[in-house]
């Protein structure tokens, strides 16, 4: 079978492959460092003093995988069902279902915590369009 316009086709293919593979070429040798969310905040240190260990409302593994869905469920529960207290399945403690007023009390270092993983994965959650992010100076 004869390849008509072979020159143009091969040339076009090369251009396409170059463009499509560009992100890979560009990043050869550069690896972004693994995200290291920091738990070093005054509120967490306080908690540790009081309860002897760092603990979130649920386990780290659960929070890492499910915090998105959990926040959605919290939102529906607070706004639509008027149920505002969350009972942790691990510690049975009660927490206010509030991103702004509860989660961010302990995790007041959004830039070194939330943004660490989100930036690495190029995720831009729009929570902060409405929910006021904690004020941070660069020292904390």
């Amino acid at each position: 079978m004869k390849l008509y316009d072979g020159g143009k086709i091969i040339a076009g293919l090369i251009v396409f492959v170059a463009l499509a593979a560009f992100p890979f070429f560009y990043n050869i040798g550069k690896a972004n460092p693994k995200p290291e969310p920091k738990l070093d905040t005054p509120a967490i240190r306080q908690w540790e003093k009081q309860y002897g260990k760092k603990e979130c409302i649920e386990s780290k593994a659960y929070m890492r995988a499910e915090h998105m869905q959990l926040l959605n469920d919290w939102r529906d529960s607070v706004v639509r069902d008027n149920e505002r207290l969350y009972i942790s399945t691990t510690s049975k403690k009660h927490f206010n279902m509030s991103l702004q007023n509860d989660c961010m009390q302990c995790h007041s270092n959004k830039k070194k915590f939330c943004d660490e993983c989100h930036n690495y994965l190029a995720v831009k959650p729009f929570c902060w369009d409405c929910h006021i992010a904690p004020k941070e100076d660069e020292k904390s």
């Binding site: 869905q69 959605n72 469920d73 919290w74 529906d76 529960s77 069902d81 008027n82 149920e83 505002r84 207290l85 969350y86 009972i87 399945t89 009660h94 279902m97």
Partner: peptide, 15 residues
């Protein structure tokens, strides 16, 4: 079908 179960939520007693 997601959502919090009844054993995961409570109301503030002062509400």
């Amino acid at each position: 079908s997601k959502g919090l179960g009844p054993d995961q939520v409570a109301q503030n007693s002062k509400a």
